[in-house]
Design a protein around this nucleic acid. Structure first.
Lengths: 235, 235
DNA sequence: TTTATAAATTGGACTGTCCAATAGCCCAAC
DNA sequence: GTTGGGCTATTGGACAGTCCAATTTATAAA
């Protein structure tokens, strides 16, 4: 008899359901950054649960950095680049300082060439379309630094999704959001942004041609420039 | 005047302090896996807080996979390998079914050669010791499948720590714990376990010699065998 | 020794209460 | 027209107490 024959049955707590629901609403865009959640007492009534259970759910979302609670004010959906977990082990300032930035880049250098390779082999029509949309967004010379980073992120996430491997998607999601402040800074330069755009185009073309080697090469060039740029900033 | 001149002042909630404290105790080893936390009512009294605040803290720790709550039983520190966040987006059952297992392996194949390379360049004395300890644990021919997986995980985590890059550590932690059930199954075979042991030894030796190429090669051999073994199991 | 049963323990959930911080408003001072 | 003080309703923070269900432990019976 196998250990994995039976599934451990876990009773779902109320707070878990609430967490799932609110997180889903955020992901779907139904709850946008800076939106205010209904007052604790009201929302609890709406959900048909006690204040206690709702609060437990809010604590989890808060600790994940998805919402912030302001006594007397209310609860608000966090902006994407301010989603710093409350109980995170390292200070957000540390992410900007020291060598922490390089850590994220090293991880990308390990992950993204493989992602580019798998994407070129497995990309489906919908993935290509997502990547093209992200590229188009980048080409529209966005003025807002936040929009720039978003467009850039969306491209790399779409590429990860094209691998049809959810592990890569999840790893890239984590990585990209973590050092977003830095990326915001480096993408500000007009010429760097233009260069980055061209590199993305090269990657997409290689993926469309299903040319694995070209995709990996283009990604390596891109990563190399990212590293160069960060090193330049740090002087 | 700079935006960053003033720091936003945030009042620390009670639950946050509790989370920090318990997480610290776990990290320090004062609270070991399978240890039972004092009963909710008792611990609240000890901490000098209400049951509510303690519960909020436990929800966060629970959602992070650090503890599990058993109604009627108590709260227990989770084993390292079973620290699967409660609100994770994909079902653990799905991890076993379908092609999901290969996804984790693909991610490891992308990450671990790089990890081996960085580890061989940056490993410190304490990292080497940790890896040696994990190897010794493996050599002790453990009977319990859980202990086997633990020893195996500890080796790979120690290797990740040797990169001195917390991003790699965090990525490996997630990956290893996710498809633990499968690894438990594949490591059951006595001969596969023996082989795996030798491969780990080869990796460690290369790291100790600071021979980057050898470390990467040894890791690739290891990953190749893992892939082979999983493919065999699935027939 | 084993098994069935009862009692104590423990987490899950809810209600109601009190407090402190905040937002919104009006108004006086300049 | 702007600033700052003061009042009030709102909102999150925290707590105590209650009830329930699952689990463990102790107890009694076979």
């Amino acid at each position: 008899m196998s250990d994995t024959m039976f599934n451990e049955l876990r009773t779902t707590r109320i707070y878990e359901k609430i967490v799932l629901q609110i997180r889903h609403l955020i992901k779907e865009g139904k709850l946008k950054p800076n939106d205010r959640l209904p007052a604790e007492r009201d929302l609890a009534k709406t959900l048909g649960c006690s204040r206690t259970s709702l609060r437990e759910a809010c604590r989890v979302l808060e600790s994940e950095g998805l919402i912030v609670s302001k006594p007397g004010g209310g609860r608000f959906i966090q902006k994407v680049d301010e989603r710093v977990p409350v109980n995170v082990h390292f200070n957000p300032v540390d992410v900007l300082e020291k060598s922490a930035v390089m850590h994220f880049i090293e991880a990308r250098e390990a992950l993204e060439p493989s992602i580019a390779a798998f994407a070129s082999e497995r990309a489906e029509e919908k993935d290509i379309k997502k990547m093209e949309a992200a590229l188009k967004a980048m080409e529209e010379k966005l003025k807002n630094p936040d929009e720039k980073v978003d467009a850039d992120s969306n491209f790399h996430l779409a590429l990860a999704e094209a691998t049809q491997n959810f592990v890569f998607v999840s790893l890239m999601e984590t990585n990209l959001s973590m050092y977003r402040p830095v990326r915001k800074q480096t993408l500000q330069s007009e010429e760097r942004y233009e260069q980055s755009l061209q590199e993305h185009r090269a990657i997409l073309n290689a993926v469309k041609r299903k040319d694995t080697q070209a995709a990996v090469d283009a990604m390596n060039v891109h990563l190399h420039h990212i590293r160069e740029n960060v090193l330049k900033e740090r002087d």
